[in-house]
Design a protein around this nucleic acid. Structure first.
Length: 505
RNA sequence: GGCGCUUUCGUCUAGUGGCUAGGACACAUGCCUCUCACGCAUGGAACACGGGUUCGAUUCCCGUAGGCGCUACCA
C-alpha cells in the first residue's frame, strides 16, 4: 500500500459551546497533522436534527480562530471532499446504507422507540443482537411482502447493522495498543433513521472518514467502546485496507472529586471550561470563556497540550510551532488528567512575562479605556514594564497600577496605622518641599537627592519611603517609589503628598 | 450489573529489571528589599494493594481495590 498523505479531522456536533476537552482533541489533531505535513479537516456532525443548536457552528469556528488552530479544509474552509456538513450528505449515506442492505450486512427494523423501551423494561440488559433479533419486528424476522407493505404504508423504520456474534475484534490503538473485544457484546446498532433520512454517528463517521481519505482518527476515549463496531463496519464495506489508525485520548477530569470535567466545576471553582463566552439561546444562560476571562490563547494552547501529553524533557513553555515539532501521539498518557486550573493561571502569568511590554500594553489599553482613562500607549508601556510581573491576568494590571492614573481617595487603614507615624506629616512636608525645589525630576535625580537628604537628616529609609508610598499609592504596595513619582510627575507627586499630610495629619 | 480502558508526590507528569525515583504547579521556609509582588535558594511530598517471575522489582505477569468511559432511532 502506498504511503498516504496524513489527513485527520476534528468532527464536533453543533450542540452547544465547544468543551475544553474537545479543544484539546482538536489541538492534538492539528499538531499531528502539521507535524506530518498533512491536512486537518473540520467536519460538522449534525446528524441528530433534534440536538442542533443555532450559533454553535459559528462558535466553533471563532474559537479556533482565537486559539490559532488552523484548518486546511472543511466547513467554511472549502476543499475537494465536501460537503463537510453531514446534514448535507444525505444522498451519499443513502447509497452506502443500500449497499449494506443489499449485501445482507444490515437489515430494516420497525420496532418503535416505545416498543424498545418496553422490551428493556421487561428484559434486564436487553440487547438488540443476534440472540434477540429474530423475535423483533424486522426484515430478518418478517417476510419480504410484509416489509414492503409496511414501508409502503408509510411506517418509519431504521436500518440496523447485522453484527455476527462470537468474533474477536481487534482494534489497534496508537496510544493503547491492541484492544480486543468479543463481537457478541456489540448490539445491532442503528445506522440510519427513515424519519429524518439521516444516518447515525457510526455510519456517517465511517463513510465520511473513508470518503475523505482520513488516515488517523484521533478522538476522545469515550469512543473506544464503539471502535470495534467501527472496525466491523469498515470490514463490511470492504474498506479495511485503508481503514484509519485509531488513537483514543484520555479524558479531562474534574480538578477535585470524582468524574469528568463539567461546566459546573468551572462555575464552582471560578475558571472557564469553554474557549469563548457562550450565550445559550434556549436558557439564556451565559457561560464564561477563556477569552473573556482574559487568558492568552498561547497559554491555553500550551497548557492544554501538556494535559495528557509530555515530550519527555523538562521543557514546559512551548509555542504552537514547538509543539508541532515535539508532539508524539504515542507519548500521550492513558489515564485521565485532572484539569489543574491553577497551573493554567501560571501559564498565563508566564506568557504575560514572555510577551513584549508593547503587546501587553495594547491589551491593557482596552482595560484602561473602560475605566475612562485617556492615555498613550507609550505611557502604558512604561507602566507595564514595571508591573506585568506582578499579575496573572492583564486586567489585574488595573488594580495593581491604578494609582498611576488616579490619586488615592482614601488611605488603607492598616497600612496607615503601620506606616504613618506621629512625625510623618512633618517629614512628608519636608520631602514635598525638597522635591518641589528640584528642576530635574528624573528618577535618578530624585533618588540621589532624597537619599542625601535622608542621610543628612539621619532619617530611616523605611519610614520615609513607606510614608511616601502611602501618600502616593494609598496602600503599601507597588514598585520602587521614584518609579512611581517619576512617572506621575512632579505636580501630581506634590499634590498627593500635601493631601496626605492634610488628611492623615 | 455487563464490557472496555486506566493507576508514580495534593495536581500535571518523567523514568528504570539494581537510581538518593527527576521536573513543573501548588504549599512552606529563607534570601533580596523602601512596601507589595517578581526573582532566587531550600524543604516536605509519590511508585494503590496482594500474589507470583527473578539474585533483585516501581518497572514484567496474574488477581484485588479505586478511578474513568460505554452500555440510545446522542454524538
Amino acid at each position: 500500500m502506498a504511503e498516504r498523505k496524513v489527513r485527520v479531522r476534528f468532527a464536533p456536533s453543533p450542540t452547544g459551546p465547544l468543551h475544553i476537552g474537545g479543544v484539546r482533541t482538536a489541538l492534538y489533531n492539528y499538531l499531528f497533522a502539521k507535524q506530518h505535513g498533512g491536512d486537518l479537516v473540520l467536519r460538522i456532525e449534525d446528524t441528530d436534527s433534534n440536538r442542533f443548536v443555532p450559533g454553535a457552528e459559528e462558535y466553533i469556528l471563532e474559537s479556533f480562530r482565537w486559539l490559532g488552530i488552523k484548518f486546511d479544509e472543511g466547513v467554511s474552509f472549502g476543499g475537494e471532499y465536501g460537503p463537510y456538513r453531514q446534514s448535507e450528505r444525505r444522498e451519499i449515506y443513502k447509497k452506502y446504507v443500500k449497499q449494506l442492505l443489499d449485501a445482507g450486512r444490515a437489515y430494516i427494523a420497525f420496532d418503535t422507540p416505545e416498543e424498545l423501551e418496553a422490551k428493556r423494561a421487561e428484559i434486564e440488559n436487553f440487547q438488540y443482537d443476534a440472540a434477540s433479533r429474530m423475535s423483533m419486528r424486522n426484515s430478518l424476522a418478517m417476510s419480504a411482502d410484509e416489509v414492503a407493505a409496511l414501508i409502503e404504508s408509510g411506517h418509519q423504520y431504521v436500518v440496523r447493522f447485522k453484527v455476527e456474534p462470537g468474533e474477536k475484534v481487534v482494534v489497534n490503538d496508537i496510544i493503547r495498543g491492541e484492544v480486543t473485544i468479543n463481537s457478541s457484546i456489540i448490539d445491532d446498532k442503528v445506522l440510519y433513521k427513515s424519519a429524518d433520512e439521516l444516518p447515525t454517528y457510526h455510519l456517517a463517521n465511517i463513510v465520511d472518514d473513508h470518503l475523505m481519505e482520513i488516515t488517523h482518527v484521533i478522538r476522545g476515549e469515550e469512543w473506544l467502546p464503539s471502535a470495534p463496531l467501527h472496525v466491523l463496519l469498515y470490514r463490511a464495506f470492504g474498506w479495511e485496507d485503508t481503514m484509519p489508525q485509531f488513537a483514543h485520548l484520555s479524558l479531562l477530569l474534574k480538578p477535585e472529586g470524582n468524574g469528568k470535567l463539567s461546566k459546573r466545576d468551572g462555575d464552582r471553582l471560578g475558571f472557564p471550561v469553554f474557549p469563548l463566552e457562550w450565550n445559550d439561546p434556549k436558557s439564556g444562560a451565559i457561560s464564561t470563556g477563556f477569552r473573556e476571562s482574559d487568558y492568552l490563547p498561547e497559554a491555553v494552547v500550551n497548557f492544554l497540550a501538556l494535559l495528557g501529553w509530555n515530550p519527555g524533557d523538562d521543557v514546559e513553555m512551548m509555542s504552537l510551532e514547538e509543539l508541532v515539532k515535539k508532539f508524539d501521539l504515542s507519548k500521550c498518557s492513558k489515564a485521565g488528567a485532572r484539569f489543574d486550573y491553577k497551573k493554567m493561571v501560571w501559564f498565563n502569568h508566564e506568557y504575560i512575562l514572555q510577551k513584549s511590554d508593547r503587546e501587553i500594553a495594547e491589551i491593557f489599553m482596552n482595560v484602561v479605556k473602560e475605566h475612562g482613562v485617556d492615555t498613550t500607549l507609550e505611557h502604558l508601556e512604561e507602566i507595564v514594564s514595571l508591573m506585568k510581573g506582578r499579575v496573572n491576568f492583564v486586567h489585574e494590571l488595573w488594580d495593581a497600577s491604578s494609582f498611576y492614573f488616579e490619586a488615592p481617595v482614601e488611605y488603607d487603614e492598616k497600612t496607615a496605622k503601620k506606616r504613618w507615624k506621629e512625625d510623618s506629616a512633618q517629614k512628608m512636608t519636608e520631602l514635598a518641599d525638597l522635591l518641589e525645589s528640584l528642576d530635574d525630576f528624573s528618577i535618578e535625580n530624585q533618588d540621589k537627592v532624597v537619599h542625601e537628604w535622608i542621610e543628612v537628616k539621619g532619617y530611616g529609609m523605611g519610614e520615609i519611603m513607606n510614608a511616601f508610598r502611602l501618600a502616593l499609592v494609598g496602600e503599601g504596595k507597588g514598585p520602587q517609589m521614584f518609579h512611581i513619582s517619576g512617572l506621575i510627575g512632579k505636580e501630581e507627586t506634590l499634590s498627593r503628598l500635601r493631601r496626605a499630610v492634610t488628611v492623615l495629619g
